[in-house]
């Protein structure tokens, strides 16, 4: 299982800030988000959001594999200030 934390506007899609799910890759994450929420949200994460694994940003272009216990964060476009 991995933990997914949702921040900012991404929580409007999920109505939750955190969950644990059984996935092992970035591709599976996108599939999960599409099935569980909407295709729109999966596309939003893929195209617009940063994704961190254990607090380090990943390169979404690469085929990323997740390990048991990984903490994943969905980082939408930011708006400080």
């Amino acid at each position: 299982m991995v933990t997914i934390e949702y921040f900012g506007p991404s929580k409007d899609f999920t109505n939750k800030s955190i969950e644990s799910i059984q996935i092992t890759s970035l591709l599976q994450l996108y599939e999960y988000l599409e099935i569980q929420y909407t295709k729109e949200f999966s596309e939003y994460v893929k195209e617009n959001c940063g994704i961190t694994v254990d607090y380090e940003y990943i390169d979404k272009e690469l085929g990323v594999e997740f390990n048991e216990g990984d903490e994943i964060c969905i980082i939408p476009p930011v708006s400080s200030g």
Binding site: F7, P9, D12, C49, P76, P77, V78, S79, S80, G81
Partner: peptide, 24 residues
């Protein structure tokens, strides 16, 4: 990694995105 929500007098609200946001 900070997000702003504008809260309006009419009770609605809206998440903002900075034009230069580069997290993706």
């Amino acid at each position: 990694e900070i997000w702003k929500k504008e809260n309006y007098n009419d009770g609605t609200s809206s998440w903002k995105e900075n034009e230069n946001s580069s997290v993706h």
